[in-house]
Design a protein around this nucleic acid. Sequence first.
RNA 1: GCUCGGAUGGUGGAACUGGUAGACACGCAGGACUUAAAAUCCUGUGCCCUCAACAGGCGUGCGGGUUCGAUUCCCGCUCCGAGUACCA
Length: 990
Amino acid sequence: MDYQFKEIEEKWQQFWADNQTFKAEDNSTKPKYYVLDMFPYPSGAGLHVGHPLGYIASDIFSRYKRLKGFNVLHPMGYDSFGLPAEQYAIQTGQHPAITTEANIATYRRQLDQIGFSFDWSREVRTSEPSYYKWTQWIFMKLFNSWYNVENDKAEDISTLIEKFNISGTADVKAVCDDDVKSFMPTDWANFTEEERQEELLKYRLTYLRESTVNWCLALGTVLANDEVKDGFSERGGFPVEQKKMMQWSMRITAYADRLLQGLDTIDWPEPIKEMQRNWIGKSVGASVKFKVESLKSKASTLNFELLTDNFIEVFTTRVDTIFGVSYLVLAPEHELVAGLTTPEQKQAVEDYISKTKKKSELDRMADTKTVSGAFTGSYVINPVSGERVPLWIADYVLAGYGTGAVMGVPSGDQRDWLFAAHFNLPIVQILDGQKDIDVQADSTKDGKYINSGFINGLTYKEAVPFLNNWLEEHDAGKAKVNFRQRDAVFGRQRYWGEPIPVYFKDGLPYLVKEEELPLILPEIDKYLPTETGEPPLARAEGWAPKDGEHYELSTMPGWAGSSWYWYRYMDANNDSDFVSKEAVDYWKAVDLYIGGSEHATGHLLYSRFWNKFLKDLGYTKEEEPFKKLINQGMIQGRSNFVYRLAIQSFANEQEGDILPPLKKSIFVSKGFVKQIEDNSNSEIQSQIFSILDKETKLIKDLNPSLIGKYIFTGNILPLHVDVNIAENEILDLTKFKAWREEYANAEFILESGKYICGVEVEKMSKSKFNVVNPDDLIERYGADTLRMYEMFLGPLEQSKPWNTNGIEGVFKFLRKFWRLFHNEEWTFHVNDSIPTKAELKTLHKIIKKVQDDIERFSFNTSVSSFMIAVNELTDLKCKSRQVLEDMVVILSPYAPHICEELWVKLGNQAGSLSYTAFPIFNPEHLVEDEFAYPVSINGKMKMNLNLSLTLAQPEVEAILFADEQFAKYLDGKEPKKIIFVKGKIINVVL
RNA sequence: GCUCGGAUGGUGGAACUGGUAGACACGCAGGACUUAAAAUCCUGUGCCCUCAACAGGCGUGCGGGUUCGAUUCCCGCUCCGAGUACCA
């Protein structure tokens, strides 16, 4: 029978499901391999053709690894908490669990029909209590932990309490809040329970603290930094503002250095690593204290007490330039600004602050050219030189970074230079290596210091440690490392997320008991905040802790459930642990992770953080969770356009009713659009006229009293047309007329009898009619064709527009492959003949090629090679069972359904294909004894010469000079040099 | 601005360590089969010159360099895409 993909694919998908063919073994002597796809959020729109790209690649890889003798873990599940289902719930009242369930069903159906080899017995859903129980459990572990800098790892909070008991805060080196108290063990002993809890909260790895957060009014929730793009929420694009709120946060900053260092140990794409490095933003430098000059004599109204011993701390990466400081700048929001402003400058400073406030976050970011600022009237003292330095405020200093204060060194920093030039502040050269500092700043580190007091004559390398020591000795600063990364806000004022397992007593948070987990998400009547502005969970009736006042009303953010899910897959149905020790010992970490680069600074950073934390507590083994990461490229949409002529009714006459607007649309094929626009094709012009004349006449015949005629205005409107009704840019006119009622009687001006559509690359979206659905393609060509075509499209990591043109080629290939196993009458037919040399050569070429390609994730090139192999075997009329059976195994990771079918027809047991052995490459079959040497003259290829590969240069030269054709090229000249590379090339230099 | 990608026929792309540029596929053109169409099969297809063949010239974004030889390595530039942005 001809290749019946539908029947074959349904049959094998059913077989795999019934037999749990892809269930990974828990106890195996085989080496393990863990292939993971990024956790999908089951959206209502289902999968479009871009989504499965990465899944197909990881599936090919998984199937290949099984054939190579690995015990492969290849799971799938759903990150099923999230905003879209909740937004939908708000609009419709539908419980998000119901929407989510329905969406998951769609996803599952779509995934199944592509033929993925997932181990569905391990499916997880983050919104299931059996799953989020463990997300809550990890939260509790974080709450009960602190970061001990001495051991550079997280430890149970009890070890901190012990330190407090024995020596107070003296021995504690922790990553903690800035406002922790210093105390003696006796003080600790005298603290009340509330005081102790309050203090411990400042050390916990997840903590509650009043902090500035990104508040999104439209979504009614706070957002993490990575969820905000250019001042708008990433989901929905709503404005985001800064607000002070009591919030749960995760002390990810404790891990900043380890997160940074770990990047050097993992095989990830460089751009992703770079994004994480930038996000963490480590700067090595120094903090320096500038004492504030006493203002006693000048301003009697100021608070002297506050100021006398006050200082401003700045962070700098160029402490060596400190003698070049000509001013200091505070962020306008800095808390000291008000106190340090002199009465004379009060007006100017307040004006500036109110001007800054009016600027939106976005304006402030966009406007980086204009220099602005205001003088506070105060001075600070440069600790190294004792000089008075004026204190300014300016919005180029960000309150959120470093200390919110900057020392201005105009000669070394362009931004400072512009500021100084604008406000006439001194620009002092500090290195003899600096050039042209009257034109612009020179940030060089070359040369020796000048105008720099006690570091004059030193080099950069000498000056930095010297200054750091000096500052520390004089209590004026010290070497310091600063990070851009902030702690991650962890609470969301939303319903559809994991409840935070915390209740409150006397205003302090306490964990619920571990036995009470999971803390189930309660039912509520409406998915909206309460009238008093509390989160939706405040609506839950009777939802109260046994002890204490109320539960935490925020829920966890979207990234909570996805920050540890790869461990759950190792042991998905464990009721007593989030994952068993045995499972972790065996599976360890993800070997290959495939997903989009949009998770670079969110999921991929948080996951690494939780992973390190779980390792610190001894629950897991690996410092890094994802050993190798591949980013599949984005599939963009490819829109098709039709071009409608803009037609008007026009009349010269005064009397009578003018023609009604033309009901008929006239479309002109792409090739004529430009010609019409520049009036260069009179034939088309007259064609348009005659159509319009005909229409005019038609209407006037019906109603002779009408006046005027239809004319073409000269404008052409490009309109999106559904990509599914055009093929290879040729519009299917029948389908197009049926597409929209108003086009039923449309007219077309065709080129060579065809209507050619325009093309543009855009985002894939419904409104642009460029969404291609895998279901339709599977219906028409089958899953095996879709799988291979998605790979054939180009390199996995490259972004590209989807284009269905060409899928026929892959489909034809599979038919041709099927035909290899059949005779003219489509009867299955192979024989037991001994393979010929040529057949073996083809076979071993493809064995090697596919093996090499898969291991370097070059799936597109193996598809081409399969085509070549099948073309060759077809030409050789190969019917050898031995060769064809190996072909089935090699192709099976790519096109599993057709291969399963042929495998059984070849006499093998159903289902055994997935675990058979990948054919072993034997290089002997590729050994050639002849080679058609390209002969080039001066590097330009001229001819081929068939020579034995055993020949060395002298023999080759002899044959070459005896060659007639070559003599022609030589044209009597004497070669200067002959380069001979065995098996590669002969190049003659004339 | 900075960082990271990328640029090869009409199209998607191949050429893995410098060694025959354009594999494979789409599209297009011509042919076979057919009453016809679809499907299938065969042939051709980088550009220019040429009726055609032979032969030749030009060709991997642009300009240089290294080399017997460069899509591949080096220097400078242009354009496109992604990320990031007063980070002190």
